[in-house]
Design a protein around this nucleic acid. Structure first.
Lengths: 200, 200
DNA sequence: TGCCGTACCTAATAGCTTTAGGTTTTCGCC
DNA sequence: GGCGAAAACCTAAAGCTATTAGGTACGGCA
C-alpha cells in the first residue's frame, strides 16, 4: 500500500473536514487515522498531540474566515460593510460548523497573536472606520461587534434560538440594524471623562 | 466505610464544583467517583451517562444564574437594570467558570424548554420592558442582549480579549452603554414594513 | 548503488466509559 | 424485632482513546 505522504497541514485539514461532517468533538486521532488509512500512532509525526491538532484547526479556520471576510466587505462601507462582515461570519458558521466550533474554544497565546487573528481584527476595524467613531473608541466597538456576532451564532448553535418563533433571521437583521444605530450614535465621551452619568 | 448516599443532584453538584475548580473538560466520571470516594460504575445509578451529567450541570447553572439575575435586577429599571443583568452574568462567569462553560455547550431540547431557561428569558424580557420597544420587537431585543452579553464573556474566556489593552472592563461598560442607546432608539419599523431602506 | 532521513508501523501502557451481574445496606411494614 | 425488597454500592470486563518507545522500509540524493 502506497504511503499517504501526510503533512502537518494535511492532517489538520482532514481533522477540520471530519469536524464539519461529524461534529467537533469527534475530532479524535483514532478516527482521523482511520479516515486517512494510517495507524493512529503515525499521526504523531505530524502533530504534537491532540491539543495541538485542534489548535491547528482553530488557526486554519481563522485564516479561512479572514479570507471570506475580506472578500465580503470589499468595496462596501457603513451598514453594507457591517452586514457583509456579519454575513461572512454567519455563512462560515453554517458551512463549516466544526471549524467554527473550533474558533469558540480557548485559544493559545500563539493563536491569539497569529497573523490570521490579526487579519480578522484588522478587517473588523476597517469596517468600523466607516462610522464616526473617535479613534480611542474603535477598539471598544470592535469588541462589541465581535461579541454580538459570535454570541448570536453561538446562541443559534447552542439551540437557545434555533427553530423558534419568530424567525432568527429577522432577529439577526434587527441586531445588525441596532448595532448600526449604536455605532452611529456612540454613547462614549469624546474626551476622557467617566460615562457613569446617564439619565435612566 | 459508610456509604456516600449520593443522589442524582449531589453527583451533578459535585461535577459542577469539579468543573469550577479544574476546568470544564475535567468533568469525567472517573475523577468524579474518585472525589466522591466511590467506584466509577456506581455513578451510573444516579446519572444515565456522561452526557446526562453535563446536561445536569447545564441545567443547574441555568437555575443558579436565574436566581442571581433576579436578585440583581430587583427594584431597578432602564440602564440600571441592564447593567445589573449583565453584571449578574459576568459575576457568575467569573465565580463559576466551569458551570458557565457548561452553559455554552449545546443544550438538549428539554433543557432549552426547562423552567430555569424560561426564567432567564423572562427576566431578560422584564429588563427590556423598561425600554420603549414595541411588543413585537421585544424578542429580537432579548436575543440581541443575550448574544452580546454571552458573546463578550465568551471572548474573554476564549482569550481573544483577556489581558489586553485597553481594559476589557471599559469595553464592557461601553458595550452596555451602546446597547442602552440601541434599545432607546430601536431601528425597526413600528408597523410591518421591511427595514431594508437605510441610508448607508 | 548505497545511505540517510522520515513516513509509517507494531507493541505496549494507561485512562475513560459503559454494561452486566453480584452484594450489602437501609427502610417500610407486619 | 425481623422480613423482604428497593436501591446503593461493588467487582469484572470489554472497547475506545491518547501517548510513548522503538523498529521497518521507502524516497531522494550523493
Amino acid at each position: 500500500m502506497a504511503r499517504a505522504n501526510l503533512t502537518s497541514a494535511a492532517v489538520i485539514a482532514a481533522a477540520a473536514d471530519l469536524a464539519d461532517r461529524d461534529g467537533f468533538d469527534t475530532i479524535t486521532l483514532s478516527a482521523l487515522a482511520r479516515g486517512l488509512g494510517v495507524q493512529t500512532a503515525s499521526l504523531y509525526s505530524h502533530v504534537r498531540d491532540r491539543s495541538a491538532l485542534v489548535e491547528g484547526v482553530h488557526r486554519l479556520a481563522l485564516g479561512e474566515l479572514a479570507d471570506r471576510i475580506a472578500l465580503a466587505i470589499g468595496g462596501r462601507a457603513g451598514h453594507d460593510a457591517l452586514t457583509a462582515l456579519a454575513g461572512a461570519h454567519r455563512d462560515y458558521a453554517r458551512e463549516f460548523p466544526g471549524r467554527w466550533t473550533a474558533l469558540q474554544r480557548p485559544a493559545t497565546e500563539a493563536t491569539v497573536r497569529s497573523e490570521a487573528a490579526g487579519r480578522v481584527a484588522g478587517l473588523t476595524l476597517a469596517v468600523l472606520r466607516g462610522y464616526p467613531l473617535p479613534e480611542s473608541e474603535l477598539v471598544h466597538a470592535v469588541r462589541l461587534l465581535a461579541a454580538t456576532v459570535n454570541g448570536f451564532l453561538a446562541l443559534q448553535a447552542n439551540g437557545s434560538i434555533a427553530h423558534r418563533e419568530p424567525d432568527p433571521d429577522l432577529s439577526w437583521r434587527r441586531a445588525l440594524d441596532a448595532l448600526d444605530v449604536a455605532f452611529r450614535s456612540w454613547p462614549a465621551p469624546a474626551a476622557g471623562s467617566s460615562p457613569a452619568e446617564r439619565k435612566s
